[in-house]
């Protein structure tokens, strides 16, 4: 492997991190928000797929991709609100409802998405940030979608809001001790309903990225479990929005490893390199979950923690 080859792989990893990470980022941030309130919504894969379909359909019918993104978010909001409402009923398990909503969202998307597989909808445009470089590889890797920056800004905002605002405090209190929240006069169910709905909105936007930017088309095989992986990323990121972004970037970069190594001629063992993101996650999770602080960071009301 020459130095030039290493450069190609390096650029591909950066490009991959930017291109592939955004849906992970949005779903993970949405799930982080929901879990901070003490509830798990496993159904975000459904929001993601439905969001992808609605965004594509919206962009196709209105001609405006950004309107499609907004509609995708709203479809996710509705699914999230339904999840939040059902979970407040007595003796309802949020994980089981989440699995039901995953199937529901995917089913809805496939049912209503049929007529939108063949047509071509207007896509989101990228911002070419690599114009300074004469290297076409760099220029290509730095074709960045605005949603990517929106995700990072959102993570910073959430981190700040969790720590420094009244709303953030209420959310964390609901997630850590429902009894205290009730004692303070906070409606636990309402907080969780809003947090799940907002989380659902973000997951829907993540789906819009899949269908309107990268890979940028709607078909029934579009998501290969990104929504589910992103839920796992939240645990991996230990409920910290910034770490959610970092985990999403790492996952995106690791996913680009297999194809880019094959492109420079390291073609042996691609099954192993393709599995790299999952192996990496496993190791980091083992390493990070062993610490006591990891256990402290989990919201106390989560059904998996209790």
């Amino acid at each position: 492997m020459s130095q030039g080859d290493l450069f190609i792989v390096f650029i591909a990893l950066i490009g991959g991190a930017i291109r592939v990470s955004t849906p992970f980022m949005f779903v993970a941030l949405g799930e982080c928000l929901t879990e901070k309130s003490g509830r798990i919504n496993l159904g975000l894969e459904g929001n993601l797929v439905l969001g992808a379909m609605v965004a594509y359909a919206g962009s196709y019918t209105t001609g405006s991709p950004w309107l499609g993104v907004l509609m995708a978010g709203c479809s996710g909001l509705v699914l999230g609100a339904m999840h939040g409402y059902i979970c407040k009923l007595p003796k309802v398990n949020d994980i089981a409802v989440g699995i039901a909503f995953m199937s529901f969202g995917i089913g809805l998307a496939f049912f209503f998405g049929k007529p939108y597989i063949q047509p071509t909808a207007p896509r989101l445009e990228a911002i070419p940030l690599g114009g300074w470089s004469s290297d076409p590889l760099v220029a290509q890797a730095l074709q960045v979608n605005p949603l990517f920056f929106l995700g990072i800004a959102l993570a910073l905002f959430l981190r700040w809001a969790f720590a420094n605002t009244r709303w953030g405090l209420i959310l964390r209190m609901t997630g850590d001790s429902a009894a205290s929240a009730r004692a303070m006069g906070v409606s636990v169910d309402l907080v969780r309903l809003l947090a799940t709905a907002a989380g659902g909105f973000l997951a829907g936007v993540g789906g819009a990225f899949l269908s309107l930017f990268y890979p940028g088309s709607w078909n029934e095989g579009l998501s290969s479990g990104q929504g589910l992986m992103a839920v796992a990323l939240v645990i991996f990121a230990r409920w910290d929005p910034i770490r959610c972004v970092l985990a999403a970037l790492l996952f995106g970069a690791a996913g680009a490893l297999g194809p880019s190594l094959q492109s420079i001629g390291v073609s042996q063992g691609y099954y192993f390199f393709n599995a790299a993101p999952y192996i990496l996650t496993l190791f980091i999770m083992i390493a990070s979950a062993r610490s006591k602080s990891a256990a402290r960071e989990a919201p106390g009301e989560l059904s998996i923690v209790k």
């Binding site: 190609i8 650029i11 591909a12 490009g15 991959g16 291109r19 592939v20 076409p136 590889l137 290509q140 899949l210 990268y214 890979p215 940028g216 088309s217 078909n219 095989g221 579009l222 290969s224 990104q226 996913g255 680009a256 297999g258 194809p259 880019s260 094959q262 492109s263 420079i264 073609s267 691609y270 099954y271 393709n274």
Partner: peptide, 22 residues
């Protein structure tokens, strides 16, 4: 470039980009 699966849209897009970059 082998993706390893019959249908994996994101990796197919990555593979296409990698080939074009090459």
């Amino acid at each position: 470039i082998f993706t390893g699966e019959w249908s994996l849209p994101v990796r197919e897009a990555e593979a296409s980009n990698a080939l074009i970059d090459a």
